[in-house]
Computed example of a mutant assay.
Amino acid sequence: MADSQTKAAGKQPYVLPQFTPKDYSTFFLAGALCATLTHGAMTPIDVVKTRIQVDPEMARMSLLSGGRRIVAQEGASALLTGFGPTAVGYFVQGGAKFFGYEFWKKQFASLAGDQDTAVKYRTAIYLGASSFIIIIIIIRFSFFADILLTPLEATRIRLVSQRGYATGLTTGFARLAREEGVAGLYAGFLPILCKQIPYAIGQFTVNEFCHELVFRNMSEETKRSLSQPAKYAISLGSGVVAGFAAAILSQPADTLLSQINKGHGPEGSMPYRLRVLAQQSGFRGLFAGLGPRMIMTAGLVAGQFLLYGAIKDALGAPPGLEIHKESDKKI
C-alpha cells in the first residue's frame, strides 16, 4: 500500500540497504578499533588538556607550553598517563556509537516512507541518530557503553591530574573503588552523558553536511571519477571540521567532567554540583583548554572516519546509508 501511494504521488521508489547481523557486527568492530586507536594515539594531548582544565597554574597555558611543563617536571612518560583506561574505555564506547549511528539512521530514514521525505528531513534523521544516547528507544545501546566508560574515564582523570595516584589502569581503578566506592567511580556519569550527546551530534551531523556540501558542488561525472586519494581527502577535511564542531559543542561538559572526577565542587546532588562549578568557572573557565582539545578532537574525528571506512572495506562490510540532497538516485 505504501509503495503504491508513493508511486501515485510521483515520488522516487524507496530502497534501504538490508544490513545483516554480520554487517552490524562489522560496524561495531570497525567503530571500536577506530575509536580506541585514535583516542590512544591522542593520549599526550589529552593529558595536557586535562591538566589545563584542573590545574590553576596551567589554566592559561597553550598546548606546547603545557606539554613542556609536564615533561620538564615529570618526564616524557607522564604524557602517556591514562593510556590504558583510554584505550579500553573507548573500544566499547566507540563500537556502540558507530554501530548505533548506522542502525538508528536507517530506522529513522525508514520512517520517512519515501526518498524525497527522507532528504527533506535529513537533519532530523542525522540529529536523531547521532543523539541516540538520550533517546529512550536507543538508550539500551549507549547507556551500557557509558556505564563501562564512566569508571574508566574517572580512573584516567585521577591518573592524569594526581601525580603518583597509581601505576596504571588496574591499580588506579582498584584504589578509586576502594577509597570512594561506586559513588567515586560513577561521579562523572551525568557530565559524561552531557558531553557525549553534543559531541556525537557535532561528529556525525556536521560530517554528513560537509560531505553533502562537497558533493553538491561536483558534477556527476566528477563524482564517478573520484580517485581514492580524493575520497580520503574529502573524508579527512569533513572529519576535521566535524571535530572542531564536536569539541566546541561538548567543551563545557568536558571541563565539568574533569573537575568532578578531580573532586572539585560542593557536596550535594550532581545537577547542583555541576551548576555551582559552572557558575564558579564562568564562560572563560568552561572553555579552558579548548585550543588543545580542538586539535585533539579534529585528529580524533578525522582519524576515526578514515579508519572506520578503511576497516569496513578490509572486512568486506557494505557502505552506510547516505541521504544527500544532491542525490537523485535511490538511497
Rank of each mutant, 00 (worst) to 15 (best):
A2V: 04
D3I: 02
S4M: 02
Y14A: 01
V15M: 07
T20D: 06
P21F: 00
D23T: 05
S25W: 01
T36C: 07
L37F: 10
L37Y: 03
A41F: 13
A41L: 12
A41H: 09
A41W: 10
A41V: 06
P44S: 01
I45N: 06
V48N: 08
V48G: 05
V48D: 03
I52D: 04
V54P: 02
V54L: 04
A59T: 15
S62Q: 12
L64Q: 14
G66C: 11
V71K: 15
E74K: 12
E74A: 09
A76R: 15
G82V: 08
F83C: 13
G84M: 13
G95H: 00
K97G: 04
Y101F: 05
K106S: 05
F108R: 04
S110W: 11
L111C: 02
A112K: 06
S131I: 13
S131R: 07
I134H: 05
I137M: 05
S142C: 03
F144M: 13
D146G: 06
I147T: 09
I147R: 02
T150E: 01
V160D: 11
L169W: 09
T171M: 14
G172Y: 06
A174I: 15
R175A: 10
E179Q: 09
E180A: 06
V182A: 11
L185D: 04
L190S: 13
P191V: 14
I197P: 11
I197L: 15
P198D: 13
P198F: 11
I201Q: 14
V206N: 09
N207V: 06
E208H: 15
F209D: 14
F209V: 11
H211F: 15
H211G: 15
E212N: 15
M218Y: 04
S219V: 04
E221L: 08
P229Q: 06
P229M: 03
K231Q: 14
A233I: 05
I234L: 14
S235F: 08
S235P: 02
S238G: 15
S238M: 11
G239C: 13
A245S: 13
A245N: 00
A246N: 03
A247C: 10
Q251R: 13
P252K: 10
P252E: 14
A253I: 15
L256T: 14
N261R: 06
G265R: 10
S269P: 06
R275S: 10
V276R: 03
Q279D: 01
S281H: 07
S281Y: 01
G282T: 04
G282Y: 06
F283R: 03
L286C: 01
F287L: 10
G291S: 12
R293N: 12
M296D: 11
A298N: 00
A298G: 01
G299Y: 00
A302S: 12
Q304N: 02
A317N: 07
P319A: 09
P319M: 03
G320W: 01
I323T: 04
H324V: 04
K325T: 11
